[in-house]
């Protein structure tokens, strides 16, 4: 090798070049990597969920929905609020498996096409989305239009100490009302859908209490 003594595998110039490049890369990585982590962190952050009281069991009936304003993000005022449509479970029509979390059916107002807020029209017993014409039936199943899956739901439970109905975290369902961790609108969950649209890292596991 030119510039190297006998038996040397690296000369001074190459050594200096590698050192300076390495130091530069280290310095650049020292501010790039934290910045990148800072920007991508929320994807991996696990946010705790809370149960919020929405009324007494007597407030809800089987045959119509009650609108409840809920807080899905704390501390940002109006922008953090959303709507849940709540009714009592009706064994006649609600054929999905019953457990401690669905004595009350709480539907999210978020349309499963692209996330606009749906409105319940009592006369038609339909949920209708103003943006692109998505229609859901009384149970929140897709009845027409572009939505790819039924309306998202919230876990509900009866707080034994206060006697109030409480609304918990959101979950998504496929067309057979199988539960999935919450997904964004526009992500089908039937068939291959649940693999094409994986669950986010940040989903908390529901405690079994």
């Amino acid at each position: 090798m030119p510039g190297a003594f006998d038996g040397e595998t690296i000369n001074r110039r190459r050594f200096m070049t590698a050192t300076v490049h390495g130091a530069g890369a280290l310095a650049a990585a020292a501010f790039t990597l934290p910045a990148l982590g800072f920007a991508l962190g929320p994807i991996f952050a696990r946010e705790p969920f809370s149960w919020q009281p929405i009324g007494t069991p007597a407030d809800f009936t089987e045959d119509t929905y009650v609108i409840k304003v809920i807080e899905i993000v704390q501390g940002i005022g109006e922008a953090g609020k959303s709507i849940a449509y709540v009714r009592q479970r009706d064994p006649q029509i609600d054929t999905e498996h019953e457990d401690q979390y669905n004595h009350w059916i709480a539907l999210s107002s978020r349309c499963m096409h692209l996330g606009c807020p749906v409105r319940y029209v009592a006369a038609a017993e339909r949920f209708i989305c103003p943006c692109h014409g998505g229609v859901y039936d009384f149970r929140g199943m897709v009845a027409g239009g572009p939505p790819v899956r039924p309306l998202d739901r919230f876990y509900t439970r009866l707080n034994q100490t206060t006697g109030l109905v409480e609304l918990g975290p959101r979950y998504s369902v496929n067309s057979e009302l199988r539960r999935f961790s919450p997904r964004d609108p526009g992500e089908p969950l039937d068939g291959i859908g649940q693999y094409l649209y994986p669950s986010r890292f940040s989903t908390s596991v529901l405690p079994s209490n």
């Binding site: 994807i43 940002i76 094409l196 649209y197």
Partner: peptide, 18 residues
């Protein structure tokens, strides 16, 4: 595949937050 993570990145979380 990457859609869910892209939307989480844009929103800085699962919901439209602070």
């Amino acid at each position: 595949l990457i859609g869910p993570f892209l939307s989480d990145f844009l929103r800085a979380g699962p919901e439209f937050g602070a």
